[in-house]
Amino acid sequence: MANDNLQIEIPVGEWVEAGVDWIQVNLTGVLDGISDVLAAVIDAFEGTLLAMPPLVLAGLIVGLATWRVGWRFGLFAVAAMALLFGMDIWDETVSTLGLVIASSLVALAIGIPIGIAMARNDSVEAVVRPLLDFMQTMPPFVYLIPAAIFFGLGKVPGAIATLIFAMPPAVRLTNLGIRQVGEEHIEAGQAFGCTGRQLLVKVQLPLAMPSIMAGINQTIMLALSMVVIASMIGAGGLGNTVLTGIQRLDVGLGFEGGLGVVLLAILLDRITQSFGTARRGAAPSGLARLKRLFAADGPGASGRG
């Protein structure tokens, strides 16, 4: 009828398939290269973490929590570690942690330079911004399909989907942070003879650091949530526990996996945030604070009173 006449088919799906086929045929070498590099990075982190005696790793995490956040959070970390051991999901948690760290690092290694390029060049920003919007509005599950097609099943496609999903905040907040550096600081840098690179390294990046750290924090949190989803294509870890719980309709198991994710999220969030709120490049707590305390006794500080 009239409806049939009006029907216009746009075969978006077919085009994408054709594109994917083409990539699979022609870019095998590139795909393999990416796969090898990622596998090496993942192995390095996950392997090291899993190879550590659990108590040592747990001790490290508690120590980090206490040093960066405070003794109360240290106590929380102790309880969290005990809970993870008690629920017998330690290995899954460590595996997830390794994958999160590996894919976050790769996401940051790609995302921060893109953010810098975006901040320094308006045309780059004009191209990258809609791409980021696209990446962030796409439902995370959709990333699993091309990842699985190009890289099969396992940790590498899991990491690929994760790093793509987790990258946008690092790009955005790096760009934002650099663009927010005050005109007066830029002028001061230029007035004292900074080259473009010096301006970036000595003025823009340090002043953008709080914003960049917020981006890093968000990237890590997004990576954690995506790693759980990526267990559907065999990324393993805590996501697997949750997935098994769903498949067997085992509420208890699913909850344990979920609780593990939450504990890990809280630890990662608070610890990475603490780096963002550090006011200066070097952590002023710990050693530096001690040093300044002692320096204050020296002749240098006598004029202060």
Partner: peptide, 27 residues
């Protein structure tokens, strides 16, 4: 030619000494 700014434009992540040395550092 060096310059002094109304808003001071000091680098908050640098100590007073490092701020004072900024021009020399970039050169």
């Amino acid at each position: 030619v060096s310059m002094v700014f109304q808003s001071f434009a000091l680098m908050p992540h640098r100590s007073v000494l490092e701020n004072a040395a900024f021009g020399l550092e970039v050169s």
